[in-house]
Amino acid sequence: MNDKNSQKIVDVIKNFARKHSLFVLAYGTGCGAIEIPATMTSRYDAERFGIRGAATPRQADVLLITGYLSTKTLKRVIRTYEQMQDPKYVIGFGSCTINGGMYWDSYNTIKLLDMYLPVDIYINGCMPRPEAVIEGFIGLQKLIAAGKAEGAKKYKENLDWYRANQKKVIKNWVMPDYNW
């Protein structure tokens, strides 16, 4: 029983646990937040997949960006994301996170979320229905199980690029450094 193999087994267990225990930060950033209660409650019951809400970023695994992000909100979202502990995942929710959606020409919403935060998986639609949301989560679970949900790693490696993008839209940058 060498280290590599045992490490593999441990990884499999860990990933299995991670996959089936996703704590979603209950942080409604945009209009898409209205779909979350529906997803969580009786009809669609996301909890059967081990998905449940977490109150603070310290406890959360998944950051759900529910729809458009104004630059003002972006600042908070970045901070929140940085306060989450590894491993952590970002789900882009709705068209707005992909291309700005109906806010494509707005002066104060961001158009492409991936420029600012490493998105692991997008959920298409405006709004995406709870079924879609759950499918998104399952997609994320598959990624995790395969060990491919490495958004956080990407963020860490390309921090400078992300920072530059972030600072471009957030003029008064007074945040503490990302240091873990």
Binding site: S42, R48, D86
Partner: peptide, 27 residues
């Protein structure tokens, strides 16, 4: 969950949560 007419998580869900939490970083 059953009272709320949901399926609910499996009964061993808390073990998974625990493993995940212990596997998380504490930076």
């Amino acid at each position: 969950a059953r009272v709320q007419n949901r399926v609910g998580p499996p009964i061993y869900q808390n073990f998974l949560d625990l493993i995940k939490l212990q596997a998380k970083d504490t930076a």
